[in-house]
Design a protein around this nucleic acid. Structure first.
Length: 121
RNA sequence: UGAGUAAGCCAGAUAAUCGCAGGUAUAAUGUCGAAAGGCUGUAUCUGAGGAAAGUCCGGGCUCCACAGGGCAAGGGUGCCGGGUAACUCCCGGUGAAGGCGACUUUAAGGAAAGUGCAACAGAGAUAUACCGCAAGCUGGAGGUUAGAGGUGAGCUUCUCACUUCUCGCUUCCAGUAUUGUAAGGGUGGAAAGGUGAGGUAAGAGCUCACCAGCGGCAUGGCGACUUGCCGGUCUAUGUAAACCCCAUCCGGAGCAACACCGCAAAGGGACAUAUUGGCGGCCCGUCAGUCCCGACAGGUGGCUUGAGCCAUUCAGAAAUGUCUGGCCUAGAUAGAUGAUUAUCCAAUACAGAACCCGGCUUACAGGCUUACUCAUUAU
RNA sequence: GCGGGUGUAAUUCAGUGGUAGAAUAUCAGCUUCCCAAGCUGACUGUGUGGGUUCGAUUCCCAUCACCCGCU
């Protein structure tokens, strides 16, 4: 198991916001940009609109857990940023999983054949 | 049984699988390195709170040379005693306010040091005199006594009746550039002690009794203060979370502090022998040449053993202190605790450490324990 | 994390303890053939909760929201 590389600095996030493709879901917004490293890097953010620290931490944990499920099916060479949105209602992991898969497909960052093959076996 | 008061406790549990952070051990035939060791893997242990929150106080720690002296300014605190490293915190008490009560609340020094403010209303706002109540004076009306005059009647010296005038007394009414008074008067947050009796032209601490307040002495208490006695009636509006006075305390900045390593450190500019800066305002004293641009998106330490936690002994009314023994219990750096399943449960609220402690304040589902009060019923 | 600041009408701002004001905006009327401009009038309130005071936008305490800085 390889360790996940994360984006840290603000200028890295700004670069992806400005140049990358994005798609908004109900709970999260996804930004994707190709990089030249040959590996994938992710960033997760939750700003103050999401809520206080407990809510922000929970949103980040759920996104991180969902990413862990789909990590192997995302092609290398991409920078991905997940932004948690401010939602009034309660939500669980299952909804985040469903939405993340949908969003990854929308931005063409999901290896459907590998997913199907693994499911069949 | 119902209603309530006070103090304290818990903050979902268990099991399995996957996943995250840190410590320790280990590594062979993994990988990087000269090595120490790192990365990675494996095993094992540990892993958010009662408020971690707000950042409202107080400290530790670090730097400002030591954190020094004096003056000025500013700010905090403010019944008494104790506790504490310290506090504006805590404990106990005093006074005051609230509650039938258990009990609760309390920024509670000084208003006879001075200054300011008190809108509107009201006669008047820190002292006043509009109405009123009385006294005086003037005028009018009435009553009455005395004196004088006139008319009439009779027993004509004298008596009686009526009437006029003058003086005095008195009642009522009106007026007032007069005097007294502050008892009463639709106001107001507040009208300069309260109640009762005497007293007075009318009234008034004018006098007396009790109460309140003030002063003195004594008693009990470490003290705030309490209780008792005596004395003068001078009684003194409120506001100090208005200025202020008194007492007392306070140097500043904050772990993005600070130290070290690495990178960079070529050069340019500003002020300089009594200037500039440290030293937040001035003086003394003291230290150093100083600052800006070039030019910080790196790493390590600081970082968790501490005014620590648990049990216990003793002192104390308590806060708290103390003796003995045991324990080590997060330490990240875009920031770690999550997911799924099963069982129990009535159900899971407020909410996530970021240098560390002691408090305060605020948010909060539900449950439990102890002590006490009131009401009702039964014995 | 640490430090600092601000909340007044729909908007921009005044207001030093005594009935809270200006400009713009909105609405209505007048004026005009119509519109604009102009004139007149109306409307809307101290972030929230306590306390001090006779009385609080103002003074004190707590709380909420927003904004700024740090190397």
């Amino acid at each position: 198991m390889k360790k996940t590389v994360t984006l840290k600095k603000n200028y890295e996030f700004v670069r992806i916001y400005k140049r990358g493709r994005f798609f908004a879901g109900r709970y999260i917004v996804i930004y994707v940009l190709k990089n030249s490293l040959g590996a994938k890097r992710i960033g997760i953010t939750a700003n103050k609109k999401v809520g206080k620290s407990v809510k922000r931490n929970r949103a980040k944990r759920l996104i991180r857990e969902s990413y862990r499920v789909y990590e192997d099916f995302i092609p290398d060479g991409l920078d991905i940023v997940f932004v948690a949105r401010a939602v009034e209602t309660e939500y669980g992991l299952a909804m985040i999983l469903k939405e993340m898969k949908f969003l990854l497909k929308k931005v063409k960052a999901f290896d459907q054949e590998k997913w199907d093959g693994l499911r069949r076996s």
